[in-house]
Computed example of a mutant assay.
Amino acid sequence: MIQRVGVIGGGQLAWMMAGAAKQLDLELIVQTPHADDPAVGVATEVILAPVGDAQATGRLAQKCDVITFENEFVDLEALFYLKNQGVRFAPSLESLKPLLDKYHQREYLASIGLPVPLFTALVDPTEPLDFTFPLVLKARRHGYDGQGTFIIKSSDELINTYNQLKSVPLLIEEFIPYTQELAVIAARNDSGEVVVYPVVETQQKNQVCHRVIVPAQVSLKIQSQVEDLSRHLLNELQAVGVFGIELFLTPDETILVNEIAPRTHNSGHYTLDACKISQFEMQLRSVAGLPLGTANLNCDAAVMVNLLGYEEAHHDYAEKRKTLASIPNAYVHWYGKTESRPGRKLGHVTVKATGNQANYSKLLKIADTIENLWYS
């Protein structure tokens, strides 16, 4: 029986997982590099070490029954050594292997029949391309929240960006003129049970998610396609855990898979308040071998707004948080980070809606109100 769950990473995702662990009577042991990381104050035990330190992960393994992940910035080869010594990981290292490098991820998705944008590895930016500008340039590893992603509009810009990034392995892909960016959280356990949360719309600025609207305003056909591809992906991977799946919806109603995150995901933060079982509890249920339960909403609709840093400061923004909490049906989650800087995720606000308030335009107005209060 699994009682102690190790987590590689101690940021806000592990912090939110800690509340679910308490509900399930599980102990959470965290490996994270900084004593002020969000999960440090709520974990049962902490190993202070970089997430890529496999020796520290070996010490973590001695204290827990299974190890899961808050992020994917790990040394997979070194973790395989631990796996061969009997350490249990969930998701398995085999299911992570095709996903950590974005180029390999694209190859894998295409190989199992999932629709993806046209792509190729970038080796020499002076060579002729099978792409027209604009195109998307991505770092193959360690990119998140818009970091490592560039919209390139010309050959000169491609060469200059390539030279600035120097030896970073890169992927290029076609620019998709989408009508909506969508996302979905899906989970699978060891017995093959799969649950899929509602499809959501994510609204991004500079490749950073600002808002999530749930459910997305899409047809039943699109909802069904997204659910089917989610189940197909997790079953092909034989995955155990929660996965965040980002998608594009094109003007001709075609779904393309953008990226897969093998962990809980920002697009699923609304589940803490707007679902019967949050993505964080679902992650723990899946890795602990528990029945997954339902991914249904507990309201008609919801909007989640990220509270992003907009200045260099040490500030807890207590008054602004108090004002945000006064919005009807609002739930403010503050990650306890001591330093603000532009673009850093400091917290989020979810507002649940029922009846007439679940109207899409009203949800957008609520999101506008939150952002006006936060960024003013």
Rank of each mutant, 00 (worst) to 15 (best):
T120A: 15
F150T: 05
T179E: 11
A110K: 14
Q164R: 14
V196N: 00
Y197W: 02
A187S: 11
L135E: 06
R140A: 09
L122K: 02
E201L: 12
Q207N: 15
I152Q: 06
R188M: 04
H104F: 08
Q207L: 09
V116W: 07
D190T: 15
Q203E: 11
Q105S: 03
D190I: 15
R140T: 07
E127M: 14
R141E: 13
R106N: 07
Q207P: 00
P177F: 13
E157H: 08
F133W: 01
S154N: 07
D145Y: 01
S155Y: 02
T161P: 06
C209K: 01
K166L: 13
I151V: 13
V168S: 12
T132D: 12
Y103L: 15
I159A: 05
V184W: 00
E193A: 09
V196P: 01
P115V: 09
D124A: 07
N189P: 01
T161W: 05
G148K: 06
E157T: 03
F150D: 05
R141D: 03
Y103C: 12
I185P: 08
P198V: 04
G146S: 08
F150Y: 12
Q203K: 13
N160P: 00
P134L: 09
I185H: 01
Q105N: 04
I152A: 09
E201Y: 08
E174K: 13
